[in-house]
Design a protein around this nucleic acid. Structure first.
Lengths: 152, 152
DNA sequence: TTTATTTTGTTAACCCGGAAACAATAATAA
DNA sequence: TTATTATTGTTTCCGGGTTAACAAAATAAA
């Protein structure tokens, strides 16, 4: 079996298991779902975050974000505010509790990042270059594929 | 920015878009969901497939498979049978319609496989070796991580 | 054998998103 | 200005999955 076939087979296996990867088991904080944490992350990063901006950033529906933000409000992790000259848009900001979750998530994120970096350290420059090219190509492929869909 | 960091960043981007990849837009057959097609695939491949075996193969709950198989029965794509010496286990087999869906899915699968192969053809042997090592390592990592979880 | 335990498939209640309809507001055109 | 169009956020309904409880059957233990 040539290399290409082996890569392919493993790649498929990985895909199958990928859901295991995502973020599960992080146990960031019980009682807060993954989507909620991501939402908090967005609110912490976006300038004047509202439902629409968050939904775009998270690639979810406005309806979905509307529900999530409602929950976060209920849990006291975020609060909403409006600008005096605009009665339509509703913005969010993190409360102290939300800030804390935001910080925990960032910490965990950098920990995972560190793990990946030490993982990559075991590869030679040439190997890393090959992997890089591969991922660059894949990414381009996905981007072009997703714009295809938008054009449909 | 060194290579490792670049790979990492791209890898994360890809992850974010990965859901786009899975199987969406295949339009194998309207009126049949992705899970249903996968279920048909399992039933076509497993020896004496029952709810339990399918759920293990698909990494879904028995309850979930129970519902899906009910739908497939309703659509006439599969049928159930039992062995004379066992009144508990219920097995499935594909009907003609199910066979047809099974075949279509296989065809599409090999088409995708072909696309990936021509994709990999653009890489040198050394590059392919690096990519292969990378995926092998990742896969091992995932496997060990998931067994960790089982031990929990 | 009889009794406990395990396995199997189903169901009810629930959670999470998406799609689509909707009212309120803002932005644009006339 | 007024009228039309676009944007924003919410809500209802639905599909798809999980969890947990359950009855029926098979298996293991007594």
């Amino acid at each position: 079996m040539n290399q290409a076939l082996k890569i392919l087979d493993i790649f498929i296996k990985i895909q199958e298991q990928l859901d295991v990867f995502q973020h599960k088991g992080e146990d960031l904080l019980d009682e807060i779902s993954l989507a909620e944490v991501h939402c908090i992350d967005c609110i912490g990063m976006i300038d004047h975050p509202n439902v629409t901006k968050i939904s775009e950033k998270m690639s979810l529906t406005r309806g979905g974000i509307s529900k999530i933000s409602k929950k976060l409000l209920g849990k006291g992790l975020i609060e909403s505010y409006q600008e005096p000259d605009n009665n339509k848009e509703i913005y969010f900001r993190l409360t102290e509790g939300g800030q804390s979750v935001y910080g925990e998530h960032k910490k965990l994120h950098s920990k995972v990042r560190q793990e990946w970096l030490s993982f990559f350290a075991h590869y030679s420059d040439d190997e890393q270059a090959a992997i890089l090219r591969f991922f660059t190509d894949i990414n381009d492929f996905f981007v072009s594929k997703s714009t295809d869909k938008i054009e449909k």
